[in-house]
Design a protein around this nucleic acid. Structure first.
Lengths: 232, 232
DNA sequence: CGGTTAGTTGACGCTCTTCAACGAATGTGG
DNA sequence: CCACATTCGTTGAAGAGCGTCAACTAACCG
C-alpha cells in the first residue's frame, strides 16, 4: 500500500507538476505515522520537517499562558501542515496531535527549499495553500471579535462537516471523533457553553449523535444560525 | 524621487534577488498613491493587483454581518498586501484603507505569477512573508479566544509601537494617528472598553498622548500586562 | 463661533465563564 | 457478568467582564 504519484497529484499542492517532479519529491519524502493521541511535533520544537497528511486527521493546537488550549486548525487528508515554521526557519508555533490514527509524508526543510527553487510551480501552489489558510485565519479573527458563541459553534460544526462529513440517511455525520472539549477549543468557548448550545440544538432536532459523534440532521438550519442576522 | 532597486532590496520580499531581477520587476510595477482615508481596493473587488507599500500606513479591514469592523492587519512600509487574494484568483477579503497618505507599488496578478516562475527565490520569499502573516493571525486567534480585553489592548499597542514607534524623551510614540475606534477594531473590543482601559493606564502614567496620538511612557509595564499571568 | 468628530464616563444588563455537583458511557480486571 | 475507575457530558447557580445605551465634555475646523 505505497503512495502513488496519482495520490499526490490529487493534493492541490502538486497540481500541474510533471510525473518526473513527483517521483523526485516522493524519493526524498519520509512516510511517518502517528496513532490517535500522539503527535507529529510539539510546540517550540525546532522546525525540521513539513508534512503532507495522507490519512487521518490532525489538530494543530496552541496553548495559552494559563493552560487554555486553542485549536488553530484541523488538518484533513491532502492538506499540508508545519510549512510556515519551516519556511521561516523557526520553531513550530503549536503542537500537531493526531485525532485519529494518521499517516503523513515528511520533507526536510532543506529539501523543500531545493524543490521549490527547482520547481517554481510548487512554490506557487504552496503560496496559494498558505494564502488560503491565512484567509481562513483572518476570518476566524473576525468571527471571534464580532460574533457570539452560538454562531461560532455553528460555523465550527459546518466546517468540520465540510472537511470530514459523510452523508447518511439521518443527515451529515462528522467522521472525526469530536468531543465537547475539542469543539470548545476550536470555536473559542468553554466546554460548558458548547454543551448547553448542543443540548438546545439536540432538542430542536438540528443535530444528533452520541459521545464523540455528531450528526448534523438539519444543516440548513445550522447554516441559518451561522449566517443570518435574525433568528429562525 | 523615483524608487531605486536598493529601496526594493530592503524589503524582505526581494532579499537575495539579483539587480537584473529587480529592474525587471520595477519595469512592470505601477506606482500608486492613496491619500489618508482613501482606499487601494475594496472588499469583494476582483483581485487584480497585489501591492508593496513603500510609504505610509494601511489598514486591512473586514466588515462583520452587523457592520462591525475588524482591522485584520496594519501594514507598514516594506510590507506586502493583497497577495493572498491574487494568488487564489479570488476577491479581496477586506478593504485596504490608507491611514496616512501612502504610496505603493502594484503588480498585476499575471505579472506576479510570471515573476515567481521566472525567479523561484521570489516565491520562496513571498511564502515566508505570507507564512509570517499566517502565524500572526493564528496568534491573534489564540489571543481573542483566551485572553481578555485589557491584555489584548496592551498587545495591540506594543505591536503598533514595534511597527511604527519613534523613541522620544517621554517614551515611545506611535507614529500613526490611532483613535480609540481603530484600537478597538484592532484589539477586538469596543470603543468604550478601550477608552476605559486607556484612561486607567493614563492615570497610572503607563501611557500618555492626546487625540489620535499615543505615547507609551512605560513600555515595560505594558509588556508585563501583556505577558504576565499576575497583575502588577 | 457653531458644527463636527473624538473621547470620557456612568448605569444597566446580557453572555459567557467559573464553580460545583451530578449522570452517563466506556473499559478493565476479577 | 458485575463492580470499578475513568473519561465524557450535563445541568444549575452565581458572578464577572464587557457590550449597549445614553449623556456629556473636549478638541479641531472652517
Amino acid at each position: 500500500m505505497g503512495i502513488s504519484s496519482t495520490d499526490l497529484r490529487r493534493a492541490g499542492l502538486f497540481r500541474g507538476l510533471t510525473g518526473c517532479d513527483l517521483t523526485g519529491l516522493l524519493a526524498v519524502a519520509r512516510p511517518q505515522q502517528a496513532a490517535a493521541g500522539t503527535t507529529f511535533f510539539l510546540a517550540d520544537d525546532q522546525a525540521a520537517r513539513c508534512y503532507l497528511l495522507t490519512a487521518g486527521y490532525v489538530k494543530l493546537v496552541q496553548a495559552g499562558l494559563d493552560g487554555a488550549e486553542v485549536v488553530v486548525r484541523m488538518v484533513g487528508p491532502g492538506e499540508i501542515f508545519g510549512w510556515v515554521a519551516v519556511m521561516g526557519g523557526s520553531c513550530y508555533p503549536g503542537t500537531a496531535e493526531a485525532v485519529t490514527d494518521s499517516a503523513a509524508l515528511a520533507w526536510d526543510a532543506e529539501a523543500v527549499r531545493r524543490a521549490i527553487l527547482a520547481t517554481p510551480l510548487l512554490g506557487l501552489n504552496a503560496l496559494e495553500a498558505v494564502g488560503r489558510r491565512l484567509r481562513e485565519a483572518q476570518d476566524r479573527v473576525r468571527e471571534l471579535a464580532t460574533e457570539r458563541a452560538e454562531r461560532r459553534v455553528a460555523r465550527t460544526l459546518l466546517r468540520l462537516a465540510d472537511q470530514a462529513g459523510t452523508s447518511t440517511s439521518g443527515g451529515v455525520e462528522i467522521a472525526i471523533p469530536v468531543g465537547r472539549q475539542l469543539l470548545a477549543d476550536t470555536a473559542g468557548a468553554t466546554l460548558h457553553t458548547v454543551s448547553r448550545i448542543l443540548a438546545a440544538w439536540d432538542h430542536q432536532g438540528i443535530i444528533g449523535g452520541s459521545r464523540q459523534r455528531i450528526i448534523l440532521r438539519q444543516p440548513d438550519r445550522l447554516r441559518a444560525l451561522a449566517e443570518d442576522d435574525s433568528e429562525a
